[in-house]
Write a protein that binds this DNA or RNA. Structure first.
Lengths: 209, 209, 209, 209
DNA sequence: GATGAATGAGGATTCATTCAT
DNA sequence: TATGAATGAATCCTCATTCAT
């Protein structure tokens, strides 16, 4: 969504703009993010900014797309084809997401802020990208597990996917806010616990609840 | 967080202010909510507003506290002492929350928007209230279940509470957005499905994952 | 189209705003007129301006309405009921318009600039007022003259009204620009000439053209 | 008013610039016309534009001159020497102008917008050209008619010329705006009516006004 | 205690023109 | 000569807060 002009810029300058924008959106959110602050941080002229992007919204959409793409990169990288069991798959996907968050803190903040945009008109224009790294991450894998007879027949795939996506968001937020957590490795037990919980349930076998 | 002046006001006037504020915060969110619009809707003078509240933030905190208190009312009302099983407890608590949302749509919106404030400085000042109707809703009950030997020993209570709180938020959002849902009763199957999932797990017994 | 706030202002302040606005619109036209300049000239704060008027357009519409009303005042004042002949009526109406222009130069400039707004969306919202001091000034009088048998049957009332309205605009512009003309009295011969021309025609009787 | 560079350009490129400029000035007016849009439409570089013209004003003056020249072409073409009567001459000249408008809608819009520029400093620099296709169109012919004794002695040539010029503008505007009018031929009755009116007057012979 | 006008820094966006390559 | 990125003052407008009455 940037203009051609933006792509003709030297990479270094483009990076300054992107970096400043990411910082603004991550720390202030879309509507409080200030174009004035972005151009100041990126050391470009106000007018230049509007030669790179039609408006603030265009920039935002570009950054969000970039963030979601980056998130997907981490997920694709994990080469899910080799992962057989559902439990292991879910562990891996959450680890991938946390690694994304670890290495791209501000992009992760932006991604995790997306659900808050859902009521706005901007969201609709982002929905396609968002879906790819949202619910759709889980639905196909759950369907496969159903076919393989590995999932209880009474489980509703739709709700389960929601729960899993939601959990991944929550896990990421947990990571982003928890100041004591330094590496994605520290999160592995948390992930295992939560995914284990979803897979096996809270309830002790044999007990009635 | 209002001034004494506010509490000396006739109840009817106070209600006008509260109602207008709830509407603004629910529909626009904190930062986009307009003081000008609130005083207009409440039919009070701009200057009066600043005699009732030090600033917009004070009003927001007051409304949030009110919303959380109201939510708690619904939860307390359900008289959990009589509820024995954990599953049934979780179903009931989610139904209570949905009933709160059903009868106080705008307050529910404000409550469910709270996690988005987490990065802001305002959140810290609200944390205490938030906790009461958040995580702390689940932790004591989970501890009890542990003592009763009803929960797998490897389950981490802390994370389980997070997952349950998160699920309750997600269920509420689902209710608030789903236009086809008219009554909290329509949500009961959804709740049962999701809670069932958390209690029993996704995995089919006997299968390896 | 101003807000109540504007009308609550002391007359002196209101006049400062109106005067500054008239000056801007008259000298720059609608789109080049600067709100910043207006508030500067009127010695009010930018924010105050937007408490008086919703936007620049509202102010413009207010000023245009004011200008057209003022123009009408001069026309109504001439007490057309006592004016019998069409020629005399047309002379008088043009004199009234020139007197309006003489005593309200900038308002007259704004009024005479209106036809240029015709292609804009603003015009539509002003049309009603404009019509009253435009074509409709002439049509009823021409109809009356037709009934009295004083007008050639082949004359199309519609076109004649247009020609007369157009001539009045032209006469006013002539007055506004002609630097040598100091008083409306200097314009009387011009008016008589032009109206005489429209009434009697250019052509010498008996000559073939 | 373009630079030599402009005239050294291949004709095709020059035309692209001219066409884009005409479109802008016709549809937006001088001050709203966008240089950025012109260079975009003409597919030339911003910098190139300023090598062809010193500034926006220079381009405008060039286009206006072009428009007035084109208008004159249509008028000259009608070979007025062969036209004898004043009435017929006026009919023909108005038809010529309408034909110009019909075949050069955007140029006609620019020409008819000129009077609105009269208050601006730009106008002065265009005045010479404007006059040639304005008042001066009528004055010589009126003088001739006076010499031939075909015009009432009390008619002031100067004012009559103004009225006629003004009427031609009005007729053209009428043509440009009237959506039901497809061809200049549809305008002939209107022209005959208005010119007839000016030649013979509104007043019925024998009646007193 | 009530009122509502005043404030001004800040918001996003536009645009003719310049200048380095 | 052609290019297109850079510029920055100017545009309209918003809004929480203050203050005089």
């Amino acid at each position: 969504m940037p203009t051609d002009t933006f792509f003709n810029l030297p990479k270094e300058k483009r990076n300054r703009v992107v970096k400043a924008a990411i910082y603004q959106f991550a720390s202030k959110g879309y509507s409080k993010a200030s174009v004035t602050q972005i151009v100041h941080d990126a050391q470009i002229a106000k007018g230049s900014f509007y030669q790179y992007f039609n408006d603030k919204k265009s920039l935002y959409k570009y950054i969000v797309k970039m963030a979601l793409d980056k998130k997907l990169e981490y997920i694709i990288e994990m080469d899910s084809s080799k992962i057989d069991g559902l439990y292991y798959f879910l562990i891996q996907i959450n680890i991938a997401i946390i690694r994304f968050a670890e290495e791209n803190i501000n992009l992760a903040r932006i991604v995790n802020d997306l659900p808050n945009m859902e009521q706005t008109y901007i969201y609709e224009e982002l929905e396609i990208y968002h879906k790819k790294s949202g619910l759709n991450l889980f639905i196909p894998r759950l369907k496969k597990a159903v076919q393989e007879g590995k999932i209880k027949p009474e489980v509703n795939i739709h709700y389960a996917a929601h729960l899993l996506y939601n959990s991944s968001l929550f896990i990421t937020n947990y990571f982003l806010e928890e100041k004591g957590v330094n590496s994605h490795k520290d999160m592995i037990p948390v992930i295992e616990n939560i995914i284990g919980l979803i897979i096996l349930g809270i309830k002790k076998d044999g007990g009635e609840s």
